[in-house]
Design a protein around this nucleic acid. Structure first.
Lengths: 349, 349
DNA sequence: CCCATCAATGAATACATATTCACGGATATT
DNA sequence: AATATCCGTGAATATGTATTCATTGATGGG
C-alpha cells in the first residue's frame, strides 16, 4: 500500500528541468527564433547556422516540446484511435501495424475505447490530426463533433454514408463472391451464411455479395443465422444450423472468429469431418486460421496494406483537410482444408 | 490518389476557433483566473461563483485545453504504454482493460511500439504521468532516461532488478508449483517444460518454480525445450520432445500460445489423445484455452485485477512519485480436459 | 549605378491555461 | 478591541514554442 506519510512530502519535482529553446540559443549564440527555425523544415535559416544549432541541441540533448508546439500550431501530431472489441485478431494485427507505421512517420497514437462518447470529446481536445475508428460504426453526432473541430475521420473496415468521411476497407463484395464461387465449385448444394452484427457495413456487404452471387448462379438464398461476430454466439448459431433437417453442407461465416467456432462445433459436437462432410469458410484470415488444427479456408484481408493506406491518408489529410477518400483494398481467397476445393460425388449421411 | 492541386490550397483552417477561458470569463462576468480555478478541484473559489462559471462554460461548450494545461502543469495526464508483440491474447486483453480503466479515471493512453527506443524519447517529451511496459523488458538506458525525466515506470508482467521501478506481476512461483503439483497428482512420470524467452523474468520464475517443486518431491529435473513464447517455435519444440525415446507424458508450457501449439502437434502430428496419453498445461488462461477443441488446463492470470492494480499504482505515483511498489497478484489453476486430474494406471504404449 | 526584391535574422507576440502575488475584507484568537 | 489568520479575488507572470513584424544586408535586373 501507499504510505500515507509520503503524501505529505512536497510535490517532489524530481524531474530535471527540461532543456528549452533558450538554453540552446544561449549555447549556440543565436536567438530563440533561430533555434525554433532550425527545427522547422522549410523555414528561412542559413545552412551553417542551422548546423551549428543542431549541434548545440544535440550537445544539450534538446528536443522541441511537443506540447508547446501543439499549442501554437493547433495540431498535435497525435492520431486518435478508437477501438471497440479487440476479440478479433484481425484488429489486433491492425493495431500493432498501425502503431508501428504511425511511429515510423513521426505521429503518436492515442488509444481510447470507442464506447464512451464522452471520452472521445476529451480526445478531440488534444487537437488530434485525425480520428481512426477501428471496427466501430460512426454515430452522426460524433461526425458533426469532428467536423466542427476540424478533425478528419477515417473509418477502418467500415463504410458510412456520412459525407466528408474517409474510409479504408477490403473489397467485401468481391471477397464474398469469391467465397460463393469457391463453394459452388466444390459442388455444395445447401449453403448457409452466418452473419455478424446485422448492421455492420462489413456484414451487410459480405452478405449481399454472397447472396447476390448465388442468385446469379440460379441457387436459392442461403440459410442464415446470426453469430454477432462472437465465438459463443457463433457456436449457438452453428448448433441451430446443424440441427436442421436440411442441414447445410457449406457455411460461410462473416469473420474467422465465428468460423472457428463453427469448425469447433461441427467437429466436436456433431462429429462431422470438416472439409469433407461440410465445408466452412471464414473471412479475415487471422493467424489461427492457418493452425493445423483448423486449416480454415478464409478470405484474407490485407491488414498491412490497409494500414499503409490509412497512414498515407492521414498524412494527405494533414496537408489538405479536404482530400477525403474511400480506399478499397483487394484481398485473396486462401484455400485450406476446411473446404472441399472441387466437386466430388455426394456423401451419404 | 490525392489530387496534387489540392495541396496548393491554403491551410484551410476550417477548424472552428475553440472557446477559451477568456470567453467563459466574459460570459460569466468574472476574471480568467476564476474560470481556471473553477476547473481546478481544491482551489479557492466561492461556491456560487464556481457554479455560475460552470454554467457559463456549459452554455459555451467550453472544456479546458489539455495541451495548454499540460504545458504549465508539467504533466499531461497521458500514460505511455509500450507494447512488444501482441500475439499473446493475454496482452490484448490487458490492453483493452487498461484502455477502459485509464479512460474511466480520466487518463489518456499513448501507445507505442517498445522496440524503437528513439520513439520512446519522443513519448517521454509529452510529460507523461507514467510509462507502462507491457510484456517488454526494461533496458537500463531507458530506466535512467525515465528517472531523469521524472517519469515513473511500471513493468507489467515483468520484474527487474532496477531500483525505483514498480511492477505488477502474477505469482509465477506459486503458479508454476501448482502446475507441478497438479501433474504429479496425475501420476505423471516423465515431465517436460517448454520455456518461452529464456531471459524473460516470467519464464525464469515459472521454470524455477516448476523445477524446484519437482526436486522437492524427489523427481528428476524435467526435460526442456524452448518455444520462445511463439506458436511456430513451440510446434518445432514439441516435435523435438515427442520424438525422444523417453517421450514425456506431461508438458508444462510457459504460456498458452505455446501450449496450444503443443496440443495441436501432439494431436494432429502424433495422433496422441491429449489428456489421456499426454497431459499439456499452459499459462495465462487465454480465451482460446476454454474452446472445446482445446480444453486446455492453464494457470489463470487475473488480467482484470492486474490492470486495476496498475492503474491504482499510476494514480499513487502521480500523488507521490516515490511510492514504488511490487504488486503480486494471485492466480488460479483452471483444470480442463488437456490434463489428467488424478492418478490412473499407466497406459502401455 | 540605383532601386526593387529577397533571404536572413532578432524582437515581440500569440497559443490557452495554471499559479503566484498582492490586497481587501471577513473571521478567529487572545 | 486589536491583531493575526485566512479566504476570495483579479492582475500579472510563467509554461515552451511558432510565427509575424520590422530591419538589415545582399543580390539582381535595368
Amino acid at each position: 500500500m501507499v504510505d500515507p506519510s509520503d503524501a505529505n512530502l512536497p510535490p517532489a519535482d524530481t524531474a530535471a528541468p527540461s532543456v528549452t529553446v533558450h538554453d540552446v540559443a544561449r549555447e549556440a549564440g543565436v536567438s530563440q527564433s533561430a533555434v525554433s527555425r532550425a527545427f522547422t523544415p522549410g523555414s528561412s535559416l542559413a545552412a551553417d547556422k542551422r548546423e551549428r544549432i543542431i549541434a548545440a541541441a544535440a550537445r544539450l540533448g534538446y528536443r522541441p516540446n511537443p506540447l508547446a508546439r501543439s499549442l501554437i500550431r493547433g495540431r498535435s501530431g497525435i492520431v486518435g484511435v478508437g477501438v471497440g472489441n479487440l476479440a478479433n485478431p484481425f484488429f489486433v494485427e491492425t493495431l500493432q501495424l498501425l502503431s508501428d507505421c504511425l511511429d515510423r512517420t513521426g505521429l503518436r497514437l492515442m488509444l481510447f475505447p470507442a464506447q464512451g462518447e464522452p471520452s472521445i470529446q476529451d480526445v478531440l481536445h488534444y487537437r488530434i490530426d485525425a480520428l481512426v475508428l477501428l471496427s466501430v460504426s460512426l454515430s452522426s453526432m460524433l461526425a458533426t463533433e469532428c467536423r466542427r473541430a476540424g478533425v478528419p475521420i477515417i473509418l477502418y473496415n467500415r463504410t458510412t454514408d456520412q459525407r466528408e468521411t474517409s474510409c479504408v476497407v477490403g473489397d467485401n463484395a468481391i471477397g464474398a463472391r469469391s467465397v460463393a464461387a469457391h463453394l459452388l465449385a466444390g459442388g455444395h448444394q445447401r449453403l448457409a451464411f452466418m452473419a455478424g452484427s446485422p448492421d455492420a457495413s462489413t456484414n451487410i456487404e459480405r452478405e449481399a455479395g454472397f447472396t447476390a452471387y448465388l442468385a446469379e448462379q440460379g441457387h436459392p438464398a442461403p440459410l442464415r443465422e446470426c453469430g454477432h461476430f462472437a465465438f459463443d454466439a457463433a457456436m449457438a448459431a452453428t448448433r441451430r444450423l446443424l440441427l436442421r433437417p436440411d442441414r447445410p453442407d457449406a457455411l460461410f461465416c462473416a469473420n474467422d472468429t465465428m468460423a472457428l467456432a463453427a469448425v469447433t462445433v461441427a467437429r466436436h459436437e456433431f462429429g462431422l469431418d470438416v472439409g469433407r462432410e461440410i465445408s466452412i469458410v471464414g473471412y479475415d484470415d487471422v493467424p489461427m486460421a492457418a493452425w493445423p488444427g483448423f486449416a480454415l479456408t478464409s478470405y484474407s484481408q490485407p491488414a498491412s496494406l490497409m494500414v499503409d493506406e490509412t497512414v498515407r491518408l492521414i498524412h494527405a489529410l494533414r496537408q489538405s483537410p479536404k482530400s477525403h477518400e474511400a480506399v478499397v483494398c483487394p484481398g485473396t481467397l486462401v484455400i485450406r482444408g476446411s473446404s472441399r476445393p472441387v466437386r466430388v460425388e455426394q456423401f451419404t449421411r
